[in-house]
Amino acid sequence: MTIALDIITLFPDMFTALTSEGVVSRAFKNGMVDVKFWSPREFTSNVHQTVDDRPYGGGPGMVMMAAPLAAAIDAARDRQSSLGHVPHVIYLSPQGKKLTQSWVASTLAQLQRTDAAPRGLIVLCGRYEAIDERLFELGLIDEELSAGDVVVSGGELPAMLMLDALLRCVSGVLNDEQSAQQDSFSDGLLDCAHYTRPEVFADLVVPDVLLSGNHAKIAVFRREQQLLVTLRKRPDLIAAAREQGLLSAADEKFLMKQ
C-alpha cells in the first residue's frame, strides 16, 4: 500500500535529506510513499508572493498569513481525497503534543489500514513567529505535534524527524525489520547496549555471553541490559512500563536485585 504524503513548506529542498539520502529514502525511491510538496507562495495573489505579515497588536517577528496556508491545505486535501485517502493535517509546533514511538505505531496503523480508507498525511511546516490562529479556529489543523520542548526556526526539521521515525517502521524500508521492533521505546523500555568487532577495545572486552552462541542466554542478557539501561537513564519509563503491565515476573525479580 502506498502512503499519501503532502508537505506544505517554503523550503522543499530541505527534504532532500529525507527523500534522497539514508535508509528512509527507500520509501520514496521504491514508491512506498506518494509525496507532493506545496509552497504557500503558489497561493498568493500579489506580485511579491507575500506569505507573512506583522502581528496585530504589535510585538516581534512575523506571522504566516491565513489565506495562502488555507488554500494550500485545501489543495492538499483535494489531492489526498482523489487518491482515496482520508486527509489528516499535522502542524509541527513547540505547543503540540510530544512525538513518541507509540504515536508512530498508532499513526502507521492508520496509514496502512485495509478495513476502510487509509489515512493520508498533510504536514504543515510553519515559519517565523507563528501561523494565523484562525487556521485552528476554522478546524483546518487536525493535530499539533512537537519534536520536543525546544524552538527551532521552522517546522521542516521536526517534520523530517517525525517522518523518519514513521517511515523506518514501514515494511521493506529497513534491511532487517526487527531493527525497528527492537528500537528504544518499542516495548516501553530503552534499547540494550550493543557491541561489535573487535572483541577487545581499549582493554574493554565484549561480554562473554554475546560470544557464546547460546541464543536463549543472549536474549535474557539483553533483556536485563534493557532494564538496567532504562533504570539508569529513564527510571520514569520503568514506572510507566510497570503501570501498563509490560514487565514480566522475571523482569521484576531482576529489578528487585538492583
Rank of each mutant, 00 (worst) to 15 (best):
L237Y: 12
Q178C: 12
A193F: 13
R223I: 15
V200L: 03
R234L: 01
F221L: 04
Q182R: 04
S186T: 07
G188Q: 07
A193N: 00
L227Q: 13
A180K: 08
Q225F: 11
A240S: 08
R234S: 13
R197C: 03
R234A: 05
Y195F: 14
G245Q: 14
G188D: 01
D176C: 05
L227S: 00
N175P: 04
A180D: 00
G213S: 12
L228N: 03
Q226W: 08
E243Q: 12
G188R: 13
E224Y: 14
E177P: 08
Q244S: 08
D236N: 04
A202S: 15
L189G: 10
Q225R: 12
L210F: 03
V209A: 14
L211A: 13
I218H: 12
A216E: 10
L231F: 09
K233R: 15
H194R: 11
L227K: 04
H215L: 15
Q181N: 15
P198A: 14
E224D: 02
A239F: 00
T196P: 02
L210P: 04
A239K: 11
D187R: 07
I238D: 10
K217T: 02
Q225M: 14
L189D: 00
G213M: 01
E224R: 11
I218M: 12
T230M: 11
A216R: 07
H194L: 06
K217P: 08
D208Q: 05
D236T: 11
Q225A: 13
D176E: 01
T230Q: 04
L247A: 06
S212K: 07
E177R: 10
Y195Q: 02
F221C: 06
D191S: 00
T230W: 11
L210N: 05
G245S: 09
V205W: 03
P235E: 07
S186F: 07
R242D: 11
A202T: 04
V220I: 04
V205M: 13
Q181T: 09
S184E: 06
Q225C: 13
V229G: 10
V205R: 00
F201M: 14
L228Q: 06
Q178N: 02
L231P: 02
H215Y: 01
Q244V: 09
L189H: 01
S179Q: 07
D176H: 07
Q181D: 01
R223Q: 02
P198K: 12
S212V: 06
A202F: 05
R222C: 01
V206K: 05
Q178G: 08
R222D: 06
V209D: 10
K233N: 02
N175R: 03
A240M: 10
Y195A: 04
E199M: 02
L237P: 08
A219Y: 09
Q225W: 04
K233Q: 08
R234N: 09
F201P: 00
D208G: 07
L237W: 08
D183Y: 09
K217C: 05
N175T: 14
L231S: 14
E177C: 05
R223H: 06
S179R: 07
E199G: 09
V229F: 04
H215S: 13
R242K: 10
R197P: 15
L210G: 08
G213H: 10
A219P: 08
